[in-house]
Design a protein around this nucleic acid. Structure first.
Length: 844
RNA sequence: GCCCUCGUGGUGAAAUUGGUAGACACAAAGGACUUAAAAUCCUUGCCGCUUGCGGAGUGCCAGUUCGAGUCUGGCCGAGGGCACCA
């Protein structure tokens, strides 16, 4: 029997799809559209197993939807700006553009070898100027809409490399590359006003029924809506300060007020500029780092001022005002009212500085003498020691009533606050989209006029000099606008901006006048199914949602608020980890197995210890190169294996045994195909099509349902079951038409999973018309079924019987059954529960 | 600390949503074919007497029900997210 030559056959089909432009799409209003999108990759030069999984999942869906008759948009592109290119360029003395473009070529070939149903005519790359020109236009459009602004903000500053670092690039307070201690520095930065849409972004989540709940919860927490009250505290001081505004969610605990704390960046700090002690304190605060996480571990410290804050509900009470390191300037008003008894953070601070801890809430089960001692009480209960507020139920009634009283007395106002901060998009790097702005000598910004766009990145730059490379390009920096000599903005945009709108560009990849055309997005948007890693649950997905809101804002032409109708987040690809006796990581191909034990291949005296399976990473050396897998076993085997065993949303374990068994399975399917062709040629005359027909219908039902639910692992199980059924059943002398008709449907249902193999078999059978085979519910019915027999809820056997057997007949059958009759004996039947066509439970 | 998700064989997992627990696969052990090996195929899988049969069994404890992996309450454990957010 001829072996299945995957190399030849896969190559043949891939060439065919390419030359026929099988997956190229255009608008066709007679058809329903389906936009299937996977998160586009960063062009590192090599695909990894994560890509294989992500793109296989998407491809299965896209191919299924094509067969169902949808007009499917399934594009691919490159998230090609970003630091790795700069680093690689610096190391290899290359230019980032050359490096990136050659990587794209390499990766594209690898992706094509997977046999994906991609419309490559729509390929885009974010680092090419015909992409980023539109991004610059969007930037200016948002600037006009006042959704972009410039402000001074604190950043992580690496004083050696002279650049801003992202939070994740600061390790133990030091720059990841230079090792220098990171400073907190105030810089002028561009911001997108994402917080303006806080409420919209929150409301939008409610409409996203096809998103994982987990992601919605994460975004909800990130947006962080809280309900409370703003309160003006009167101040007694010899400084020209007479009030401080605070935000609080617990105005009901105002009678427990014992201090007021300010951020060191609060405007009042200006009065302390010349105080050396305050300066020292501020230094101390900045040492605790800029990341919120670093702040969290740090001890609470304060700087006492001579200011006194007056309790608005009890004007005779005056409390000290502190600067404190735990107060954030960009949340609320940078000022906090402290109630130590009912807030753990305030409690810790009060303990340290010996401030009063006055209990004003008691739990329901305690009496009025209840006292907070070791930790703050934050639960529910009743207000005590609170004058006219006493007895109110905490928290709901007490908060609402207190706000009402404060409003009536004009001491405060109901207020909703969001945790979501504006998005700082300035990056002091070369390999990104230039910000289309120039400044005059006074530092006033001017937009670059439309006809001067794109602002292209200069080429042949020196990346080895310290600091921002664009800042060192004096010839590039100078620009004349309307006869005015200006200096360009030398920061580039965060690469997350590029990926915030690429899904729109795929709809109109060649459009010149704007980032996309209205006709195109009217037809294609929103993305019906977006597929990618859960690590983008917040940033990328929230930024993209914001971008859609921002483009639709004050826009009469279109109003799309949510870019991704459905979201699916796939799990990671894991592999066992290995270490040699010297505790070094060892990669799978350096290992040889002898008698079930693993040794180092080139030194078999060294025994390898097997560690837990972890997500593939270069640092642990537990990666498997997809290219090797495809070369050795073929794309269909790789696709089959990456989908098998684990549900797509969970992590999957890669194993050598697993891929081999997938490979063998395809060989078996091929042998079976040969047998079936043989049987077809024999053209038996027996007309017993029942079993095959029912099985095929059941199979199609299962496959269809599992495709709809992303239960791709179950589809693989269905295929194995199918194989074992067919390999027995096929010898049952079916007529030619019966065999072809059923087998054809089975093969078509396989094409989304193993497209090369299934298409090849269909071609041999000369099947031209390939549509998704609908199953027929009426043909699923079996006439003889098994009924479960239970006595007192315990399963005691099965009875084969006709469909719709009555309870009476069934009990008669049980009485005739040797094995079952002994349970009945001569006992009385107290009760029977009969679930028709399924089960009978006899209580005795 | 707060929020979310999940606990089923040696392993990855199924179970028509309250109705046959462990489909399908990996690994292991035994067997068949073979001079032998590889490949392939079959069987087994917890505890008892041993063809068969009976019992226990879905993290633990209780509850609802004729019937619970599935529903309810409590406990234990794992993973993920957020974290001085006032």
């Amino acid at each position: 029997m001829e072996r299945y030559n995957f190399k030849l056959i896969e190559n043949k089909w891939q060439k065919l799809w390419e030359s026929n432009k099988t997956f190229a799409t255009t608008i066709d209003k007679s058809k329903k559209k389906f936009y299937c999108l996977e998160m586009f990759p960063y062009p590192s030069g090599k695909i990894h197993m994560g890509h294989v999984r992500n793109y296989t999942i998407g491809d299965v869906l896209a191919r299924y939807k094509i067969l169902q008759g949808y007009n499917v948009l399934h594009p691919m592109g490159w998230d090609s700006f970003g630091m790795p290119a700069e680093n690689a360029a610096r190391q290899n003395n290359l230019d980032p553009k050359t490096w990136t473009e050659s990587n794209i070529q390499k990766m594209k070939l690898q992706l094509k070898k997977l046999g994906l149903s991609i419309d490559w005519d729509r390929e885009i790359s974010t680092c090419s100027d015909d992409y980023y020109i539109h991004q610059q236009k969007f930037f200016l459009e948002l600037l006009k809409k006042k959704l972009v602004y410039r402000k001074e903000n604190y950043v992580n500053w690496d004083p050696v490399d002279k650049t801003v670092l992202a939070n994740e690039q600061v390790i133990d307070g030091k720059g990841w590359r230079s090792g220098a201690i990171v400073e907190r520095k105030k810089l002028n930065q561009w911001f997108f006003n994402i917080s303006k849409f806080s409420q919209n972004l929150l409301d939008g989540l409610e409409t996203l029924d096809n998103w994982p709940n987990k992601v919605k919860v994460m975004q909800k927490n990130w947006i962080g809506k809280s309900f409370g009250c703003e309160i003006d505290f009167k101040i007694e001081s010899d400084l020209p300060v007479n009030k401080i505004q605070c935000f609080t969610t617990r105005p009901d605990t105002l009678f427990g007020f014992s201090f007021l704390a300010l951020s060191v960046d609060h405007e009042i700090s200006n009065y302390f500029k010349d105080d050396p002690d305050f300066f020292k304190f501020k230094e101390e605060c900045s040492k605790t780092g800029t990341t919120e996480e670093a702040l969290a571990v740090g001890e609470k410290i304060g700087f006492k001022t001579k200011l006194k804050a007056i309790n608005p509900l009890n004007p005779s009470q005056k409390v000290p005002v502190y600067f404190a390191n735990f107060v954030l300037m960009d949340y609320g008003f940078g000022a906090v009212f402290g109630c130590p008894a009912h807030d753990q953070r305030d409690f810790d601070f009060a303990k340290k500085y010996n401030l009063e801890i006055k209990t004003v809430v008691k739990p329901d089960e305690e009496n009025e003498s209840f006292q907070v001692t070791n930790e703050a009480y934050t639960g529910s209960g009743k207000l005590i020691n609170s004058d006219f507020l006493n007895g109110l139920n905490v928290p709901d009634e007490s908060i609402i009533k207190t706000i009402k009283i404060l409003e009536e007395k004009k001491l405060g106002k109901k207020k909703i606050n969001f945790r979501l901060k504006d998005w700082g998009v300035s990056r002091q790097r070369y390999w990104g989209c230039p910000i289309p702005i120039a400044y005059d000598d006074a530092g006033n910004p001017y937009p670059i006029p439309d006809e001067m766009l794109p602002v292209k990145l200069p080429e042949n730059i020196d990346l080895n000099s310290k600091g921002n490379p664009l800042d060192n390009q004096s010839s590039w920096k100078e620009v004349q606008i309307n006869g005015k000599k200006l200096t360009r903005e030398t920061d580039t945009l965060d690469t997350f901006v590029c990926s915030s709108w690429y899904y729109l560009r795929f709809c109109s990849p060649k459009e010149k006048s704007y980032g996309f055309s209205k006709d195109d997005i009217d037809y294609w948007m929103p993305v019906d199914q977006y597929i990618g890693g859960v690590e983008h649950a917040i940033l990328h997905l929230l930024y993209s949602r914001f971008f859609m809101q921002a483009l639709s804002f004050e826009n009469t032409k279109f109003n799309i608020l949510e870019p991704f109708n459905g979201l699916f987040t796939q799990g990671m690809v894991c592999h066992e980890t290995y270490k040699d006796p010297d505790n070094n990581w060892v990669s799978p191909e350096e290992i040889e197995t002898i008698d079930g034990k693993k040794y180092l291949k080139n030194d078999k005296s060294k025994l390898i210890t097997v560690g837990p399976s972890e997500s593939m990473s270069k640092s642990k050396k537990n990666t498997i190169d997809p290219e090797d897998i495809i070369n050795n076993y073929g794309a269909d085997s790789a696709r089959l294996f990456i989908l098998s065993d684990s549900p797509p949303e969970k992590d999957v374990q890669w194993s050598e045994e697993g891929i081999i068994s997938s490979y063998k399975f395809i060989q078996k399917l091929w042998s079976l195909n040969t047998v079936i062709l043989d049987e077809i040629n024999k053209d038996h005359q027996k007309n017993n099509n029942e079993e095959l027909e029912i099985y095929t219908q059941k199979f199609l039902k299962k496959i269809t349902e599992n495709l709809e639910k992303f239960s791709y692992n179950k589809i693989i199980a269905n295929l194995y079951e199918l194989y074992s059924f067919l390999s027995k059943e096929i010898k049952n002398s079916y007529k030619k038409e019966v065999l072809i008709n059923n087998y054809k449907k089975i093969l078509i249902a396989m094409t989304p999973i193993i497209p090369h193999f299934a298409n090849e078999c269909l071609e041999i059978l000369e099947i031209k018309e390939i549509k998704w085979p609908e199953y027929d519910e009426s043909k699923l019915r079996e006439d003889i079924i098994n009924i479960v027999i239970q006595f007192n809820g315990k399963k005691r056997g099965l009875i084969k019987t006709e469909l719709n057997t009555t309870e009476k007949t069934l009990i008669e059958k049980i009485n005739k059954d040797e094995k079952l009759i002994k349970y009945l004996d001569d006992k009385n039947i107290k009760k029977t529960i009969y679930v028709k066509n399924k089960l009978i439970n006899i209580i005795i």
